[in-house]
Design a protein around this nucleic acid. Structure first.
Length: 256
DNA sequence: ATGGTGGCGAGGCCA
C-alpha cells in the first residue's frame, strides 16, 4: 500500500490536480495540508467518487488539514489538545485499519525572531507532547505533513542563501529533531540519505521553474513497525509541473 | 533581476 502527504495550498484551487492524481497514484491513505476552506466548502464529491472516505477540519482562508482513506477512518481527533493552538486547524489524527495517522501543518513562523517564530517553537513542543501521548511506537504510526522546517543543509538547494533563515534556523531544526527523538523516523531521508530531494519550491521566486531551487520541508515520520515494512519513499515531481500546481509536491511511501 | 507569484476574498494577510 501507499501513504502520501501533500500540502495542496487550497483544496478548492487544487481539486483539478488532486483528483487526477488520486486516480493515477491510488494511495490508500492521503494526508493533506492547507485545505484553506470551511467544512461546507470542501469538495467532497469528486474525492468520494474515487472511493475515499474523508476526515477534515478547516477554517476560512488559512490552514486546514484532511485525511483521505480507502478504508474506514475512525477515532478522529482534531488538534493537539493544547488550548493555545486550537484556533488554527493544523492537526488531525485518526485510525485507519491498523494505522495510526496524523496530518500536520506546522506554523510557518514568518521570520527568525518574529512573534510567530516563537509561536512555532512552542507549537512544536506541543506537537511532541501530543505525539508522545497519542501515538504508541509499538503501533504502525505515520505522521505526515508540512513541518515548515528543513532537517539540515541536505534539504536546502542553497545553504548559504538560507543560512539561519526561517525554515532553516538551528532552533527550528532542534524542534524537528525532538520529534525524531520520540522514535519516529524521517522516512524520506532514510531512503535518500544524500538529500537533495526537495518538496517545496517558492512560487514567488519561481524556484521550481528556475531549476529545482527547493527545500525539503514535508515529512513522513514512521514508527519502527511502519518503517520495517516501508520499501520506498519518493517525491512526485510530476505533480509540481504543469498547470496550476501547488507550491509543494506530494511525498509517497510504499509500505508493506 | 533587492524583483518577482499564488490563494483568499474583496483590501490586506499569509506563505
Amino acid at each position: 500500500m501507499r501513504i502520501a502527504t501533500w500540502n495542496v495550498n487550497s483544496i478548492r484551487a487544487r481539486v483539478e490536480r488532486l483528483v487526477p492524481w488520486l486516480a493515477e497514484a491510488r494511495p490508500e491513505i492521503v494526508l493533506l495540508q492547507e485545505t484553506k476552506c470551511l467544512d461546507e466548502q470542501f469538495p467532497r464529491e469528486p474525492i468520494e467518487e474515487l472511493g475515499y472516505q474523508i476526515a477534515q477540519v478547516g477554517q476560512k482562508s488559512y490552514n486546514g488539514v484532511a485525511i483521505l482513506a480507502r478504508d474506514r477512518i475512525e477515532d478522529v481527533r482534531v488538534g493537539l489538545g493544547d488550548e493555545r493552538f486550537e484556533r488554527e486547524s493544523r492537526v488531525l489524527s485518526a485510525q485507519v485499519g491498523e494505522w495510526l495517522v496524523a496530518s500536520v501543518y506546522a506554523i510557518n513562523g514568518q521570520a527568525v525572531g518574529h512573534e510567530r517564530y516563537h509561536d512555532k517553537l512552542a507549537w512544536f513542543a506541543a506537537l511532541r507532547a501530543h505525539l508522545a501521548e497519542r501515538f504508541p511506537l509499538s503501533e504502525k504510526v505515520v505522521v505526515g505533513g508540512d513541518l515548515n522546517v528543513t532537517r539540515d543543509d541536505l534539504d536546502v538547494h542553497d545553504p548559504r542563501l538560507w543560512h539561519e533563515r526561517i525554515l532553516c534556523s538551528t532552533p527550528e531544526r532542534e524542534a524537528l529533531r525532538s520529534l525524531f527523538e520520540l522514535g519516529l523516523e524521517d522516512a524520506l531521508r532514510r531512503f535518500h540519505p544524500a538529500g537533495g530531494v526537495y518538496t517545496w519550491w517558492d512560487h514567488y521566486t519561481r524556484a521550481f521553474e528556475r531549476g529545482n531551487k527547493g527545500l525539503r520541508i514535508d515529512y513522513l515520520l514512521l514508527s519502527p513497525p511502519a518503517l520495517a515494512s516501508c520499501t520506498a519513499v519518493e517525491v512526485d515531481l510530476a505533480a509540481r509541473r504543469g498547470l496550476k500546481p501547488s507550491d509543494h509536491a506530494p511525498v509517497v511511501a510504499t509500505i508493506g
